[in-house]
């Protein structure tokens, strides 16, 4: 028996919003420790990795590990049926071929349940080693979304350069070029408004703006986004999901041909 209850169904809605641009379907791996998801986008350029810890749920029970392959379009339709203030419970029997979503209004006067068919998806898990990154940048998530949106008007690629002074985002194309420099914040009253850089060595990498824009669909999950970069390895874009977990996007760089 698997059962996970979340008082804020809006978290689940936001998680889905954050992944459905990149993935059509995904396997939710449920175990005693929580719910994990790892999947590559169709073109195998990026990887989404999400973790929701069991202790972050209001009630969590998972007697046996269960992998639930879900069509994210169908899941979106179902979660649209939940009000933001509803309490959501996901339930499945062991070896079930369906999952049930139960939505309860805060006053318990309306209770709805939606059963969704599960899918058998090929499991392709990539092993991601623990990595010390040369540069780790934290900045307001809304600022990062704005930068990605603004620069994607110029070109298909965004160059991210990180030095100890700050971080620079650049793009160039037919209409011209654009550079956005963010300096490290000197005085930080509010952490969520700060730009911070932890740098071992400067890094400059080029990425496809289309994917960066897709990652920013997670902006509503967190005030802060963390970018981790090292020479010649994928960028990691991480958003915390409240006190319950995180979503990380890994993006392969564009390389000299």
């Amino acid at each position: 028996m698997f059962e996970a209850r979340l008082v804020q169904s809006s978290i689940l809605k936001k998680v889905l919003e954050a992944i459905k641009d990149l993935l059509n379907e995904a396997t939710f791996d449920c175990s005693d420790s929580g719910i994990q998801l790892q999947a590559m986008d169709n073109s195998h350029v990026s990887l989404v990795s999400m973790n929701l810890r069991s202790d972050g749920f209001d009630k969590y029970r998972c007697d046996r590990n269960i992998s639930m392959g879900m069509n994210l379009g169908s899941m979106t339709k179902i979660l649209k049926c939940a009000a933001n203030e509803d309490v959501v419970t996901m339930k499945a029997q062991d070896n079930a071929d369906t999952v049930t979503f139960v939505f309860e209004s805060p006053n318990q006067e309306k209770v709805s349940d939606y059963e969704m068919k599960l899918m058998n998806l090929d499991q392709e898990h990539l092993g991601i080693p623990e990595t010390e990154y040369a540069c780790v940048v934290r900045l307001p998530a809304g600022e990062f979304a704005r930068i990605c949106r603004d620069l994607s008007q110029f070109g298909e690629s965004v160059v991210i350069s990180c030095t100890k002074e700050g971080v620079k985002f650049s793009s160039a194309g037919d209409i011209g070029s654009a550079n956005i420099k963010l300096a490290q914040t000197s005085n930080v009253d509010k952490e969520e408004l700060a730009v911070t850089v932890e740098m071992q060595e400067p890094v400059t990498l080029t990425f496809a703006s289309r994917y960066l824009n897709s990652f920013t669909k997670a902006t509503s999950l967190s005030n802060v986004v963390q970018l981790s970069m090292s020479p010649d390895v994928p960028l990691v874009v991480e958003y915390r999901i409240g006190e319950i977990g995180h979503i990380r996007y890994y993006l392969a760089p564009k390389i000299e041909d």
């Binding site: 195998h44 350029v45 092993g127 496809a208 994928p234 390389i255």
Partner: peptide, 14 residues
């Protein structure tokens, strides 16, 4: 010209 690398070039199947 820069070519788009694939994520599987960096991480391998578990």
């Amino acid at each position: 010209f820069r070519a788009q690398a694939a994520i599987v070039n960096y991480y391998h199947m578990d």
